[in-house]
Design a protein around this nucleic acid. Structure first.
Lengths: 148, 148
DNA sequence: ATTAATTCCTAGTAAATTACTTGACATTAA
DNA sequence: TTAATGTCAAGTAATTTACTAGGAATTAAT
């Protein structure tokens, strides 16, 4: 009975990026996963997985070893919430039939038969488009400025 | 790893409404749950639950007994996809912290602490607004006309 | 009156997904 | 050498979704 959720992955991803951006603005060069987790009250190990997705998505650089951590690959104004969400959640498609194939990285189902003449499809496509437009219009800079 | 799904409830709800509207246009006065289920290849018992929500949401009238079934309460042009989705899925909120309280009827969690200064919140609010705007701009008539 | 078709209602269950936990290994600064 | 980190893979618990099962109430047709 749900619909349209953004999971903890997405929310934690946004919060992590905003926190790292904020720290950078304060002059802290590099931020450890642990400090993000502690500041946000998030499980460290779980956050690591999310951060790994952000790194793989090209949004974070990492430095290993003691004193290591993460930095943004671009300025906060150049990173959109959409990019963050897609990196950690996969496609933002509302159902398998929209924008072909799977909606995310884990799901086992793929595709529904005879979807072309399905009454729901055009609605889903429009939702997909508007969600993407919306999140792509917001940057991490917007988040730390709180100017939404 | 997901995000932004519209569940089968929402999709089946849209398809059921479109089917009933289409049948009505063809002159069929009343449509049984069974005929909807069979035409759409959907479990009848499951569909009944979805139809019950549509009825409770004021979108369908019902007639009991043999020869009974369902009709739309309003013309297809007056029923939005948004109304259908909210009736069957509850709020379209992307997370508990947006538009206060629970996101749907079943969930056990309610609310996250210290959400006000959360970087994700403004994103979620905007997504919520744009999804609602989008689905409220589509009517059942649009769906059966296929003019999207 | 009986029967068959139907809505109405509730409870249970299986499958899928989400949200973690656990723990070992690799790398680097001090 | 050690402690602080990132990297990685696997497993598990909690939650949600998607059904299934079945009976009670209602009504039209016979």
């Amino acid at each position: 009975m749900i619909g349209m959720k953004i999971s903890t992955r997405g929310r934690y991803g946004l919060r992590a990026m905003a926190y790292i951006a904020e720290k950078s603005r304060e002059g802290v060069g590099i931020v450890s996963a642990r400090s993000v987790a502690e500041s946000q009250g998030i499980s460290e190990n779980y956050l690591e997985q999310i951060i790994a997705a952000l790194k793989q998505g090209g949004l974070l650089n990492s430095a290993r070893g003691a004193g290591g951590g993460y930095t943004l690959t671009k300025s906060p104004g150049e990173i959109t919430a959409g990019a963050v969400l897609r990196a950690v959640e996969g496609s933002l498609s509302p159902a398998e039939c929209v924008s072909g194939g799977k909606t995310n990285k884990n799901t086992k189902k793929d595709g529904c038969v005879s979807c072309d003449n399905c009454a729901a499809k055009s609605v889903l496509e429009r939702v997909f488009d508007s969600v993407n437009e919306t999140v792509d219009a917001i940057t991490i800079q917007d988040l730390i400025n709180n100017n939404l």
